[in-house]
Amino acid sequence: MRRTFPILVCFSFGMTMLVQFFVPSKLSTDAYNEITNWVQIIYAFALIVGVVGLLKYHFSRVSRRERGWFYNLVTVASLIVMSLLGFIGGRGDGGSFMWVFNNMMAPMQATVFSLLAFFVASAAYRGFLARNLEAFLLLFSAVMIMFGIASVGNAIPPFSDIANWILINPSMTARRGIFIGVGLGTIAVSLRVILGVERTYLGKE
């Protein structure tokens, strides 16, 4: 029963949404909007569970004085402070919540994002080492596309034409092959879940 009920729920909602895709009536679109709202409500409750879990995890590390416990304390303090700022002052423009978000959160996120430039460089260096024919072709394609898309190279017809040809033909062909595979895989997983063949995600027997 512990598994039968979730499988039945999954089957009925899966089939409902599948049928809904083909039925454009008002009842069908209303049902779709209602179920989508339910998902949002479930997510809101799950967020509470997530925050409780987060606090439990960090408090336990602080209480056990584990290595780096001070950073756990900073995480908990940040969570509490941001929650208080949001509840007391609201999330509107000009409030202290948005001030902290714009002047602390956003720059920190931008900092992590900017690391990507260095990681792209190091990954490209390893990926483009011409160790064999395939790697050489990859290197050649990358150089052509970089020249062809960069402002100077774009003005030189052979580079821009070659770059466009690579992007439109071999690159797009490979990507479409992957899209077809991902699409088929998605359908197969969905059918397995709806039909109850795939049950791992349900956890305990």
Partner: peptide
Amino acid sequence: LIGEELFA
């Protein structure tokens, strides 16, 4: 894992 291999 490329394409559908993730789902397989």
